[in-house]
Nucleic acid binder design. Structure first.
Lengths: 185, 185
DNA sequence: CAGCTGATGTACTAATCAGTACAAAATGTA
DNA sequence: TACATTTTGTACTGATTAGTACATCAGCTG
């Protein structure tokens, strides 16, 4: 494997932040280059198809992070209740109480949804499915588990929007606490 | 008053759609010109400060629509329960069951939030305040009314994100029905 | 009809955009 | 050390960007 000067993977966090802050359309190669510290030569070397490939790689990495950190524990942990509680903790930390945008949600609102439609759809579908799985294994009926999971993912997205709009992390915290109560009860 | 060929106000709906679909950064003057049918000459005649002034005018019109159609009835209707029910109907129609993006919410997620921060903040603050007012006049305690109002606005935003991400208006409908039940109970 | 005001189209500038080409540099390997 | 591979910087192209300038056109009013 090549580990000469830098690796494609190392650039992904910086790319993700640029897409988060400026959206797909607003993320120019100049911004991406400045944020990642990579020149155009390196960027097109790692991502020959340009911005589209960069965004796809970022989405894939995000998906991978959620899969290993949230979805798999929710599906496989022997203690589904603890997995749900840990998932809320991880969500709070990851989105920094609503001060960090969900890139997939932001893409869903814009025209990037058409470009990355299947990735966006799959991300939310698996999130809901993993949560519902944990709820079922915790003893809930299937239909109720499914609905509660959908509610929670929906409210997390709404909490990010509203907390950012009002610039108030407490909104995110309150929402998360309401969800915790419902998930346990 | 001049009503020669067209008016500034007539362009706002088309501008709003462009900003909704492409975001602030993605809404180029070429797109805006094509969508509105106005050339650059007319656009800069009506909006001398360019895109920024266009977006501000669109936000103001949206704010005005919500103020007259939702917020004022919620605050002033003699039957607050009916006003809340009507508000849900209007929200469903306006956002087309989640297939139409909330421009203010979309701005809140991107870097347009910094540019239009006060407008974004005020829009959601007045929405929550109007809903809370109706709940209080319907007999709820102040703190509970405030929290329920915040929940509902938050969930509407989340419902838009998730319904669009999954391309499924039924998600929006289910969320709205849950909110209706809680608002009445 | 004459003249005024506001609306429009076109041509232009300078900057920035995505993307390509390629030589130089850096690194790993023999 | 010599060679091959990967990474990087720079220079370039053509398209698109926001914004300005200004002449022309449309419609209203006297």
């Amino acid at each position: 494997m090549a580990r000469v000067v830098s690796e494609r993977k190392d650039a992904l966090p910086a790319l993700a932040e640029v897409f988060r802050e400026h959206g797909f359309a607003g993320a120019s190669l100049a911004l991406i280059s400045a944020a990642s510290g990579l020149g155009k030569g390196s960027l097109y070397h790692f991502f020959p198809r340009g911005k589209e490939e960069m965004a796809a790689a970022v989405l894939e990495e995000i998906d991978g992070w959620f899969e290993t950190r949230l979805f798999r524990p929710l599906r496989e942990s022997p203690d589904p209740g603890a997995a749900v509680a840990a998932a809320f903790e991880d969500v709070d930390a990851y989105f920094r109480s609503g001060q960090r945008v969900c890139l997939v949600g932001a893409f869903a609102l814009g025209d990037a949804r058409d470009r990355f439609g299947t990735a966006v759809n799959a991300y939310f579908a698996r999130w809901i499915a993993a949560l519902a799985d944990a709820f079922i294994r915790a003893g809930r009926a299937s239909a109720q588990a499914q609905e509660l999971a959908e509610e929670i993912v929906l409210e997390i997205q709404g909490a990010i929007v509203l907390a950012r709009a009002m610039n108030d992390p407490a909104i995110f915290q309150r929402a998360l606490n309401r969800m915790r109560a419902r998930a346990q009860g």
